[in-house]
Computed example of a mutant assay.
Amino acid sequence: MLPATDLQDNIFYRLILYGYSFMLCNVYFFLFCIPVSLLFLLFHNDVSNILTWVILFVASIPIGPALTASFSVMGKLVREKQVEVTKTFFQSWKLNFTQSALFFSTQCILITILIIDIVFLKQHPVSDYISPLLYLLLILNILVALYLYPLISHFSITNKSALKLSIWCSFTKLKTTILLLALLGLTFLILYYIPKLPLYFLTGPFCFAVMFIVNNLFQEIETMFLKS
């Protein structure tokens, strides 16, 4: 029988381990997407009703903690080369639920407001002046999210610190930011050209790639925290 260290370095073992971790992480993330998906199918003919959107919004809140939990699982896989997916996922979901749900719901509201404003302003001449700003805020919101949930999954920090650190990383770590945006763009292209590939199947690989990209940055941040 191979020693544990040799087994972990075996490429076939690692491929099986990573594939299994991706699959199980996708399954758990998908479970938290089921309520809002079912409700959307149920109410899709009644989208003009405000109550419908309120119900869909409430049902989508657990997705934020589930996303953070996915980053937590994949972050541990990146750092330690192995992970107990079930234990890590649900521990992170429970531990970071309030913080992740707060940020996720706030960002959903902001994105909805910005999109509504952009669509509304298209009917008015002032759109040429205000719409670029709204698009910029929309991009900034998404950009901050690319750092925010991985940070919450990795560090025990306050809401204020998480937000400030996300903004700081977005504008000072340009190489990492560009890589994250390229990854996000590639994910959208895959979904665009292969629409039959559900987003839920990409969650594990996407979160793994994000945590791989920010791994060195997070080590740098840990060093900064230790010095302060």
Rank of each mutant, 00 (worst) to 15 (best):
143 L>H: 07
176 T>L: 15
167 I>W: 15
142 I>L: 15
147 Y>I: 02
95 L>E: 12
188 F>G: 06
97 F>G: 00
193 Y>S: 08
150 P>D: 00
191 L>S: 09
83 V>I: 02
197 L>S: 01
102 L>S: 14
189 L>G: 04
118 I>Y: 05
139 I>W: 15
147 Y>H: 11
88 T>Y: 02
173 K>N: 14
160 K>F: 12
131 S>K: 13
97 F>M: 01
88 T>S: 02
78 V>I: 04
115 I>D: 13
139 I>P: 09
84 E>W: 11
194 I>M: 09
155 F>P: 00
134 L>M: 04
189 L>I: 06
94 K>D: 03
80 E>M: 10
127 S>H: 15
149 Y>D: 03
109 I>L: 14
99 Q>D: 01
105 S>T: 13
146 L>T: 06
174 L>P: 12
121 L>H: 03
168 W>T: 06
153 S>C: 04
188 F>I: 08
163 L>Y: 15
96 N>C: 00
87 K>F: 08
142 I>W: 12
196 K>L: 15
156 S>V: 11
198 P>N: 03
123 Q>Y: 11
127 S>I: 04
198 P>G: 03
130 I>L: 10
141 N>E: 05
122 K>W: 14
110 L>K: 04
144 V>Q: 00
103 F>E: 00
155 F>G: 03
165 L>M: 10
162 A>T: 04
107 Q>W: 12
131 S>G: 05
80 E>C: 04
139 I>M: 10
163 L>C: 14
164 K>A: 15
141 N>H: 00
125 P>Q: 13
100 S>C: 02
160 K>C: 07
136 L>G: 14
147 Y>A: 03
157 I>L: 11
108 C>I: 07
164 K>Q: 15
88 T>A: 01
134 L>T: 05
159 N>R: 11
82 Q>N: 12
195 P>Q: 09
194 I>H: 07
144 V>I: 08
178 I>W: 10
89 F>M: 02
140 L>D: 13
107 Q>K: 06
119 V>G: 05
82 Q>F: 09
192 Y>I: 05
125 P>M: 08
147 Y>F: 12
172 T>I: 05
172 T>W: 08
197 L>M: 01
193 Y>A: 10
